[in-house]
Design a binder for these strands. Structure first.
Length: 720
RNA sequence: GGGAGAUUAGCUCAGUUGGUAGAGCAACUCGUUUACACCGAGAAGGUCAGAGGUUCGAGUCCUCUAUCUCCCACCA
């Protein structure tokens, strides 16, 4: 007769066991696929790989990260117990602009200094320190969630190995003509003092005014615009070729003085102009609108830059406007128009203003010399003519990559269709430096710097998503041909938020298919946003943030994990409330208590009765459990994790505890079928702990100590 | 302007291929001589947004409408 262990007599206390259990797991070496125990004396043959989407080193983990960790840990733990050689590889992201602007802000607040006051080296040192601190917080939080990550393979998007991957990728694309330097309109963020990609723009709805006017009294056609200040940069006025109203003026050039600036406007015909919109005539400002830039290309018009990097008017804007901010210049122009009786109409309109995602600055389209990835260019790819766009399309259209939920297929393809060349150079300091050197007119691009004197490296850094795009294989050692790369790539699942489908998922597909001729992952599982109990977005200003760390402190990691996953599915936003977490804390305790009870009632059992020899009703219980287990297994296989969690929860509580325990309790007390009753409890409990383990690893591993057979090891490597 | 999603019990949501509506929480009644009050038993609660259609049968498929949410888009 065994005694009930002392610690089981109290309610389950997550705080007492979690840290030490994680240590036991970590020290077992089982997080590392190279150290996993054999199955029936044989090495594990099949890989199962998930690369953790690297959290930004900009702060702490939020509920969305917590959900990501739970989903991936459930999958990994499940597959590990199924005998796969599982690798879950952790890392963090330097998040270039996000991190730099955060540190810049902090420094300005505390010391009143800008990055230029500090200089490049000092600034990078300061960002590095901040990133290190963030990194440590984040990784310890990952551990607190119970994540079975292989820390021995941890990577950082800005470490030396990843830098080599970046330089190698850049060089190859440069040689293939897929990366080029071009002078064209880019999205300039005057606040962040850098270019940004189309994806990093957030459209903001604002009230504005649409002004209709003529450049001068002699000018024959009125135009409409919401940005009259840019009109000092106009070099043409475009009308539709079929527009009868304006046909007679096409080809004529007018010299005017507009708001103090001498401009020359040629009237041209272009079919992109809509006859019905406004006056049917478009003032063409090549330097400050990308549509107009395209018109300029077709008609070979001059370019007149009237706005600078600080969103101020240049000298070319004329004496009236020069040096003024664009918003001031706008008022100035309207005043001038009114004064000169040129303003025909002024209407209130709602317009979409492009702003920078990170800084909130209003984007100023400016022509600049920048680096781009050519997405539409034909090139030879493993003996086949194709384009990067086609590679991205095919990986998903062929079914090689499955996106869950599949409605995102359409969104993905639509995004590719509308994709323009990707601007990858950034005028910030924190990031991968562009591997290009200049000497006079000479340009040199290679993995390593050129020899000889007089070369200077490009000052710019790369878009953070360039290095993130290489993530599934740069983490496995690429460009080196490592055994990890061979064995673990393509990865099995990419699990991430649907909000970064374009930023990241699409770019990983681009780089992997281009560089390796291989998909980066077989499945994309897109999780939704974690909202608060009322369905509101969590935000600091609303004060409704649920801090995962605080919740773990209060209710335990198992409770938080269950609350995050239960009842959620791919692609759908979920709601998280403290009540829900509390409810699942009760569940962890239920598991704890049920185990104690079973131990108490079975401690006099000498020999466990095999399943085949159970009495009929007990056999029936076991059979029903088997069905439930198969059901849960199928749910996990098909990524219905929320459903699986609820089913196992329900079975444990309302079938095992409420029915089976209650029924066998009587039998055991009355000595009726006692050994069979005791045995069925042990059989089912044991297997339930296995099935529950991926969801609630801590409490199950803890009670497993008392339930496991002599020869059993840790629950985390028990056989499913 | 284009696209997607949501609408099921007071609240939060499940409902996998069409087969007599489910869970949790809240509220109600009762119970608790010991696994657990972080408990158990029971009862109550829904014309599944609305209208049509397909079908022997529709929450589930089709069409339309309404409301809400999100994404995409260089109409100046």
């Amino acid at each position: 007769m065994k005694n009930i262990p002392e610690e089981l007599l109290k309610p389950f206390n997550s705080k007492e066991v979690e840290a030490s259990l994680y240590k036991v797991w970590e020290e077992s070496g089982y997080f590392n696929p190279d150290n996993l125990p054999k199955i029936d004396g044989k090495e594990r043959e099949n890989p199962y790989t998930i690369i953790l989407p690297p959290p930004n080193v900009t702060g702490v983990l939020h509920a969305g990260h917590a959900l990501m960790l739970v989903v991936e840990d459930i999958l990994i733990r499940y597959k590990r117990m199924q005998g796969f050689r599982t690798l879950w590889l952790p890392g963090t992201d330097h998040a270039a602009i996000a991190t730099q602007s955060k540190v810049e802000k902090d420094i300005y607040k505390k010391e009143g200094k800008t990055r230029h006051d500090l200089g490049r080296d000092e600034m990078l040192k300061r960002i590095g320190e901040y990133a290190k601190e963030s990194h440590d917080t984040i990784t310890s939080q990952c551990r607190a969630m119970g994540s079975s990550l292989d820390w021995s393979r941890e990577a950082f998007t800005l470490d030396d190995k990843r830098n080599l991957a970046v330089r190698t990728a850049f060089k190859k694309m440069y040689d293939d003509g897929l990366i080029y330097r071009g002078y064209r309109i880019v999205n300039w963020d005057p606040k962040g003092q850098t270019t940004i990609s189309d994806d990093e723009i957030v459209m903001e709805e604002r009230k504005g005014k649409m002004y209709t006017f003529k450049y001068s009294k002699d000018f024959p056609i009125a135009i409409s615009t919401t940005r009259p200040e840019t009109k000092v940069g106009d070099t043409a006025c475009a009308v539709h070729p079929d527009d009868e109203r304006y046909k007679e003026f096409i080809g004529k050039t007018y010299k005017c003085n507009f708001a103090g600036a001498d401009i020359e406007i040629k009237i041209i015909a272009d079919s992109s102009v809509e006859k019905e919109f406004g006056t049917g005539a478009l003032g063409v400002t090549p330097a400050h609108s990308s549509i107009d830039w395209n018109i300029k290309e077709r008609h070979n018009l001059p370019v007149r830059v009237v706005i600078n990097e600080y969103a101020k008017m240049t000298a070319d804007a004329g004496p009236l406007l020069s040096g003024k901010k664009v918003t001031e210049a706008r008022e100035e122009v309207v005043k001038w128009l009114t004064l000169n009786n040129l303003l025909e109409k002024e209407e209130d309109v709602v317009q979409n203003i492009p702003t920078a995602e990170r800084t909130g600055g209003v984007i100023e389209p400016l022509p600049k010399l920048q680096w781009f990835v050519a997405v539409n260019k034909q090139f030879n790819h493993f003996d086949k003519e194709t384009t990067l766009k086609e590679l991205m399309h095919n990986a998903v259209a062929s079914g090689d990559i499955k996106i869950l939920p599949d409605r995102f297929d359409k969104v993905y393809h639509h995004w590719i269709d509308n994709l323009h060349d990707w601007c990858i150079s950034r005028q910030i300091w924190y990031g991968h430096r562009i591997p290009v050197w200049y000497k006079g007119e000479e340009i040199f691009c290679d993995i390593n710097p050129p020899t000889g004197d007089g070369w200077s490296q490009d000052e710019d850094t790369l878009d953070t998503w360039f290095s993130s795009g290489l993530w599934t294989f740069s983490t496995l050692g690429w460009p080196a041909e490592t055994s990890d790369l061979k064995f673990f790539h393509p990865t099995d699942v990419l699990e991430t938020g649907y909000d970064i489908l374009f930023f990241w998922v699409a770019k990983m597909i681009l780089f992997s298919t281009y560089l390796l001729n291989e998909i980066p992952f077989k499945n994309v599982y897109l999780h939704g946003l974690v909202r608060d109990g009322q369905g509101k977005k969590m935000s600091k200003s609303l004060g409704n943030i649920i801090d995962p760390v605080e919740m773990i402190e209060k209710y335990g990691a198992d409770a938080l994990r269950m609350a995050l996953i239960a009842g959620t599915g791919p692609g759908n936003d979920s709601k998280l409330s403290e009540d829900k977490i509390r409810g699942y804390k009760h569940f962890a305790n239920k598991v704890w208590n049920a185990t104690r009870f079973v131990l108490e009632k079975t401690n006099d059992l000498e020999n466990i009765v095999t399943v085949d020899d159970l009495s009929e009703n007990h056999k029936q219980y076991y059979k029903e459990w088997q069905e439930r287990k198969a059901d849960v297994t199928k749910d996990i296989e098909e990524f219905r994790l929320g459903m699986a969690a609820e089913k196992i929860y329900n079975y444990f509580w309302h079938t095992f505890a409420d029915v089976i325990i209650e029924e066998t309790k009587k039998e055991i007390m009355e000595n009726k079928n006692k050994e069979s009753a005791q045995s069925v409890l042990l059989h089912i409990l044991r297997e339930q702990l296995i099935v529950l383990h991926p969801f609630t690893p801590f409490v199950t591993e803890e009670v497993w100590k008392h339930i496991k057979k002599e020869e059993d090891g840790l629950l985390m490597v028990a056989t499913w």
